[in-house]
Design a protein around this nucleic acid. Structure first.
Lengths: 183, 183
DNA sequence: ACCTGAACACCGTTCAAGT
DNA sequence: ACCTGAACACCGTTCAAGT
């Protein structure tokens, strides 16, 4: 609040003429984030549509790294539109009510769960990440943590070329598709 | 800090004789949470072992709802043991280095991503959840959000009987198993 | 209707002083 | 070695007073 007011060039208390609360302000900010999410069209391919929408939501959350932590607060028009879109697309894709419920939760939980964790890391560049990784490695002797060291080395060698958000997303989507077909 | 000191019956500053920082204190607390995770045995079934370990980690995080938010901080012996265990089990299960990397991230991201979001909700009982849901429903007219309302009704009717954490976990595990077999 | 400073009840932490 | 109160630099917010 105090920082924001200073940035705007007003006294702190002026903010409370436009906003009830810090919570109220946050809700408004979250709605702006939700507005960035590109929503899928009517009646097309559920899998590609829900995939694109999830990726768009993920990008919106990473555009505003503070946002994921607060995403679970109250409802809001733009946030509702996003959730409605996900549910609509899979229901129109012939998901049963039950499978839609499961798929909806799996997808939305994945998006913000992944986003909060990636946003938390927040190193400014890759070099900084490498430094942090190497420092962490000092607390992990190879004889006690052989697999952990192997894994870290795998990353340091730049061998991890997969986008892990999309990788998990596809695990979920493929799993749902399989359940849809065999139900 | 101030609250903790009062609870212990000491002055605030006495804490700094046992702990460098609030961060230092949190790291210690996180290690205690990590200690609650039951680690899998050597050389058994990767799928059931990694599943049990993930569920145990999830339960530990929910036992201490504040913990998920800070899980991504630095390394720590107990936290390292947990990560080492996951990596070991899947590598011993004949995962390639690459698939192990993907599986490791998918599993660990799922556990804490899901935990932080569930912990955030934090209503004390089911009645309270129903109240909150119904209040949220007021901002969601049925004509504008038909699928969202259908979904909420599905929950209010108690028809969602799936444990969504385990459901997603099995989606991931089954996907990994499939990739393991066809690689 | 909008702005504002003083004041309140909170934080984590430094520092100097105690035993 | 362990404890501690005063003090500092922060928070979000209430309240009464301004225009």
């Amino acid at each position: 609040m105090r920082t924001l007011a200073k940035e705007l060039g007003y006294g702190v208390m002026s903010l409370y003429n436009h906003v009830a609360d810090k919570d109220d302000l946050l809700d408004g900010m979250l709605e702006l984030v939700a507005a960035e999410i590109e929503l899928p069209p009517e009646h097309a391919n559920w899998k590609t549509d829900v995939r694109a929408c999830a990726i768009s939501a993920y990008k919106a959350l990473l555009n505003h790294p503070w946002a994921g932590r607060y995403w679970g607060r109250g409802p809001g028009p733009n946030k509702n539109d996003y959730h409605e879109a996900i549910l609509r697309v899979i229901r129109q894709g012939k998901f049963s009510e039950e499978l839609a419920c499961q798929g909806y939760h799996a997808l939305t939980m994945h998006v913000v769960g992944f986003a909060v964790q990636v946003a938390e890391l927040s190193f400014s560049n890759n070099q900084e990440l490498v430094e942090m990784t190497k420092k962490a490695q000092l607390d992990m002797p190879v004889d006690r943590y052989p697999y952990l060291n192997e894994h870290i080395q795998f990353h340091l060698d730049g061998k991890d070329k997969t986008n892990n958000f999309k990788y998990m997303l596809d695990l979920i989507l493929d799993g749902l598709e399989h359940q849809l077909k065999t139900s």
